[in-house]
Design a protein around this nucleic acid. Sequence first.
DNA 1: TTTTATATTGCAATCGATTGCAAAGAGGCG
DNA 2: CGCCTCTTTGCAATCGATTGCAATATAAAA
Lengths: 340, 340
Amino acid sequence: MEKSKNLTMADIAKLAGVSEATVSRALKDSPLINKETRARVQRIARENNYEINAAARNFRTKKTHTLAVVLLVDRRWGHEVSDAFLMVLLGSIADEAGQQGYDLLLSTNQSDVADLNAYFLESKRADGLIIIGQGRNDPRLDRLAEAKAPFIVWGAEMADHNYYTVGSDNRRGGYDATSLLARNGRRRIAFMGDVRHPEMEHRWEGYQKALADAGLAYDDGLVIPTDFSQSDGYKKADLLAQGGKPTCDAVFCVSDNIALGLLKRFAELGIRVPDDVAVVGFDDNPPALFSTPGLTSIKQDVQEGGRLLVQNLIKVLNGQTIDHVAMPTELVIRDSCGQG
Amino acid sequence: MEKSKNLTMADIAKLAGVSEATVSRALKDSPLINKETRARVQRIARENNYEINAAARNFRTKKTHTLAVVLLVDRRWGHEVSDAFLMVLLGSIADEAGQQGYDLLLSTNQSDVADLNAYFLESKRADGLIIIGQGRNDPRLDRLAEAKAPFIVWGAEMADHNYYTVGSDNRRGGYDATSLLARNGRRRIAFMGDVRHPEMEHRWEGYQKALADAGLAYDDGLVIPTDFSQSDGYKKADLLAQGGKPTCDAVFCVSDNIALGLLKRFAELGIRVPDDVAVVGFDDNPPALFSTPGLTSIKQDVQEGGRLLVQNLIKVLNGQTIDHVAMPTELVIRDSCGQG
DNA sequence: TTTTATATTGCAATCGATTGCAAAGAGGCG
DNA sequence: CGCCTCTTTGCAATCGATTGCAATATAAAA
């Protein structure tokens, strides 16, 4: 029917009997243009199904109205993905970006982009970067910071990193989880997680502080390095059991996934949760609600996290100054912790 | 240190003592340019950290080297997201796009884009579209098809839709799941899922056929409309139990999420799986492996699905013809089905 | 009526890479 | 030695929207 030959501004200008300049201004509702003219041009553009050529505009204005999200998460993404967490975060980033009138460019590790600044920013593919999956020392991020590139990182604030982050108050979360367990009379509280990861390190610090405050000794043997996956939680569960008997009476897992894997293995071993061992997770993803038993967890406000990432990045783009954000966490009590 | 003043081709040309045209051709390895010249220009570009201005090139060539992924999934995404499935699919799409040298533009429902063709294609934001979350009758997709826009859809082939899809062989999957249950002596096999959704309808057809082949009567009362979420699986579980006693001896759930919610509720009700009721899910996401009991499920090859979506879309962009893809599913047996 | 301020609109340069076509140089051949 | 071919490079137009500045029209002030 309609073979829209991809109209240009010149076409609209002709149709409206004005210059291209006027069309350009009218379409962006510039007060420079008379109200009626504006309305007329806009109507004509709409009627003819005209869509402004973003490529041309981006080129001319040197702005892309696009934010790039870079997922630096390694194996979690693509191979053993079970992380509702990332999905919700990504979803809320996408939603907020849409709200703010920005497009979203998505990139994973696999697309072997070594120089993030060159690939995304200098090339004018995006105006700014959102990085998810900050490792301990990522030279790519340091390079970005050095180049004063506009970017923001999901994760934990670290003294030796000079870029801004949005994340949860991980120390507080770790503290709350652990002291809940201690309050319920648990004495041998284990920790599962990889403390080489900044966020997990903070949770671990909270764990230690809670132990100290409860008068419990810190025991290295109860700290089990575990990656993010359910499968690793499942595997490492055996390190907390000898001959089918648990060597601890509680576990704080730095992610729900780990906790879920642990629960599975404990069920197989006949270890009862929470009777024999109490368990607390972290994230409070949907799966936590439907596990058996229901998983007590530290809730991260991922929705808000996504919003803040976008909003703060946009502030940076506008030259405003921002600060680190450590969002409060919330303790969500279900059955697995043996509370009331 | 280096205050990269965003070099242009002219700068490189000057440095190399050649014209811009030569630089342009050299950087894309055009055989028109002498080998040594090519190498020299490339070296100089590399040394000076030059990155070609994508905005300018896109504008000039009218190609964006970008694919847009549009998630039309409504409530699942953002509100009750627990769908590892979508994440894995998205991940593999992103990876494959990266491999093929395409960038990925991500868009959710919330970014109220009504006219997909205008917003993404006519505006030159992307070269093609990947649609995830095809509903029964989405006028947006029909419009795209009518405009002969380059796009591809994840989901089920339907007679009255004239666009191409990549998806699983849902009839086969539904058939396999159901006949497994029947083979194991189950007589009252329930179905949980929303058959208004094309893919689920196919699974439902497979379910019916398997019943017939097993000499079992189809019972409307055993078909429970359920959306994709764990929470709905949990809620609707009560429809299959009266006074704590199950009204069926098996359930085929059209997604692992539904099954997981069901499992949770059954556990609360004291209904034993698989002894009292056998359960089979669909997708075979990671959570299925770690539920208690382990969930028997129909595995979709999501990795391959993502790859095919990208590859086929690129074929369309190159003017090649493609066809629908219904990937084979695989039965993954764990404990919940009461097999062996 | 003339001058000045204000509101609208148009002109034309510009962003940076690409590409058709012309041009210059290097050999080859009669 | 002149003509032709092939290789390699450069010239200059082009993509479509934006925007500083000039130009015109209109209204207000003197």
